[in-house]
Computed example of a mutant assay.
Amino acid sequence: MQDFFDGPYWGTGVGYVPQLFHRTDSFRLFDPRGRMAVHRATDRHLVLGRVRSTGHEITLEEPDRLTLLFPWAGRITCTIREEMTGAKTGGVLAFAPNRRRTVVEPPRRGGPFVADVLTLPMAVLREAQRTEDIRPGPISTHRLAELYRIRQRVALMLTTDEAGHPVRADAPETREIAADLAIAMSDPDDRVQSAGQRRVAQAIALMRAHYAEALSITMIAGHLGCSRRSLQAAFREMGYPNPQEMLAGIRLDAVRVMLLSGRASVTESALGCGITHLGRFSQAYRRRYGEGPTDTRRTRF
Rank of each mutant, 00 (worst) to 15 (best):
D64P: 01
T79S: 14
A128V: 11
I76H: 00
G86K: 05
T67W: 02
L118S: 03
V117E: 08
P107V: 09
T102A: 15
P121S: 02
M122E: 14
E82H: 13
E105G: 00
R65A: 13
T77M: 11
F113Y: 15
E82T: 13
G110I: 11
L66F: 12
P107K: 08
G91E: 01
G86W: 04
P121W: 05
L125C: 12
R101P: 00
N98Y: 09
V92D: 03
T67L: 14
T77D: 14
P112Q: 09
M84K: 11
A128H: 02
R108V: 11
G110F: 09
L125T: 09
I80D: 08
A115H: 09
R99K: 15
G86Y: 02
T85P: 00
T102D: 11
R81G: 08
E132N: 09
V114R: 05
G111C: 10
R81H: 12
V92Q: 02
D116K: 03
L118D: 12
L69V: 15
T79K: 10
D64T: 04
T102W: 03
D116W: 01
L68Q: 01
T77K: 11
T85V: 13
P112N: 12
R75G: 08
F95D: 05
R75F: 14
T102F: 03
R126K: 10
P106M: 10
V104C: 01
R126P: 00
T102Y: 01
E83N: 13
L69Y: 00
F95A: 12
A115R: 09
R130D: 12
T77Y: 04
L93F: 07
G111E: 08
V124Y: 05
G110L: 11
P107I: 05
T79E: 15
G111Q: 07
L93W: 03
G91D: 01
T79R: 13
R101K: 11
K88C: 11
P112T: 12
E83L: 06
T89V: 05
L120P: 07
L120M: 14
T85M: 12
L68V: 04
T67Y: 02
E127K: 09
M122C: 12
R130K: 13
P97T: 10
L68A: 07
M84E: 15
E132D: 12
C78N: 10
R130V: 04
D64S: 13
V104D: 01
R100T: 13
G86R: 09
P63M: 03
D116Q: 04
G86P: 02
P63Q: 01
G86S: 11
P107C: 03
V104W: 00
T131D: 13
E83K: 13
M84T: 15
V92T: 14
V117K: 00
L69M: 09
L125D: 09
R126L: 11
E82C: 10
D64L: 05
A87E: 04
W72N: 02
A123N: 08
A73Y: 03
F95Q: 12
G74I: 10
G111T: 11
V92G: 03
F95L: 15
A96N: 08
E127R: 10
R75H: 15
T79Y: 01
G90Y: 07
F70V: 10
L66C: 02
L69A: 06
A96I: 11
G74Y: 06
I76R: 05
L118M: 15
A94N: 06
